[in-house]
Simulated scan of single mutants.
Amino acid sequence: MTAQTQTGRRAYVTLLTNARYLPGLLLLDHTMKEVNTRYPLVVLTTPSFPSEHLDLLETLGMETRRIELLEPKGEVTLIAERFKDTWSKLQAFALEDYERVVLLDCDMTVFSNIDSLLEDPDILPSSDWIAANHSCVCNPLNQDWYEPDCKPENCAYTYSQSHPHSPPPPLSLLSTKRTYTLLNSGLVVLSPSPSLYHRIVNHLHTSPTIASMALPDQDLLAEVFEGRWKPLSWRFNAIKTLRWVHPELWFSKDGEGKNVEGRERNEKCGGDGVAVLHYIVEKPWLDLVPSSSRDAETQRWWWSDWHSMLDSWRADPRLEGYVERVGGLVVQGRQE
């Protein structure tokens, strides 16, 4: 009996609106297969995504669904142009043929199996809740669009550092600080339903706060699901900056007292390290960073996985013909 017939239809879902993000999706798919996930990856594509690449996604076993852009009705101010399509990923809430989905950004790679997010009945207190990670509000780059209370002492991950064996922070504390109510929508566990989707679209089209949201889809989710979202461990949406902003979470000690991280930590320390790595801001396949960059190490991980993926394609008659095509979509050079 398959996992789908045992537990109902469940899937991972991501959004792809243009070819610039295709390398990210390909490596997300590859790393999910490497950790032996039991569930399919469904890709929502908009008309702006070139249809010439759909055959590759089909060959890799991904299901694609064409959607139209979901947008607010009025004028909005965005902190980055790349955020203009992000509301569209909320159409995952309309996938009524799935009982539960995990919505993922396609700039992620998977370090350990996360099927528990689809299978554990305790992840969602009820079907009108979501589960997600907190937003890191430390503002290490001093960006001016952060609210004044966004500073390390108010960050949920600062709480996690001193309470390693409790949720980050527990539900009972979410109302004690505004910053504890902020989520990161890179990974969201949800139960699709017409009523939830209608609530989201109605908020998008009618709420006066939409025009001033700095981070469109995740700020919207934080408002719509205020008091009805459950915090997940940092490891399920480990933004790459956590490595140097919250090293107490990122690193662990092995039996010899050596700092370990990434897959090595999962192997040596009982799988309590990064499960999903989120490449926020600069994308490894689009921008090489200087070797002195604090993100150079995690960038190197992405490239190592990318070359491993292409090696596996070269050994597969179904995929070897795509190697040159996707090679033209990534920045040329080498991450030092």
Rank of each mutant, 00 (worst) to 15 (best):
D219T: 09
E71W: 12
D144P: 07
D311L: 14
E119W: 04
S312V: 04
M1G: 08
Q161I: 12
G8S: 00
L124Y: 03
S304M: 12
E223G: 06
A80M: 09
P168N: 11
Q161D: 10
D287N: 13
R9A: 06
L118N: 02
A156D: 12
S293K: 07
E264C: 01
P50H: 07
R263L: 14
H163R: 06
S207A: 05
V281S: 09
Y322L: 00
D305P: 04
S185T: 11
E223S: 06
W234H: 06
P167K: 01
Y159A: 05
N184Y: 06
T64A: 15
V326T: 01
I130M: 04
G327N: 13
P247W: 07
K253L: 14
W87P: 00
K230N: 09
L28H: 04
S160G: 14
E34N: 14
K151Y: 01
S162L: 15
H134N: 03
V42Y: 03
I239W: 02
I114L: 05
Q299K: 05
P125N: 12
P192L: 03
I210L: 14
R82G: 00
D85R: 14
G255Y: 13
D295W: 13
S48W: 10
G257K: 12
G273N: 03
S293T: 10
E336S: 15
H205K: 14
L232G: 05
R334D: 15
P148G: 11
D219C: 08
I200T: 00
W301Y: 11
E223I: 15
A211L: 02
L25M: 02
S48G: 15
E320M: 14
V42E: 08
S51R: 13
E248M: 15
R235Q: 08
S127G: 15
D144I: 10
Q299G: 04
Q6P: 04
V281E: 14
I114G: 03
K230I: 14
F251E: 01
I114C: 02
E99V: 08
E75P: 15
V102Q: 04
M213Y: 01
P194H: 05
R265Y: 01
Y322F: 10
P170L: 00
M108G: 01
T37V: 03
H307W: 11
R100E: 02
F93G: 00
E75C: 10
S185Y: 03
Q6I: 00
N184A: 05
L78F: 07
G186I: 02
S308G: 12
Y322R: 10
N142Q: 11
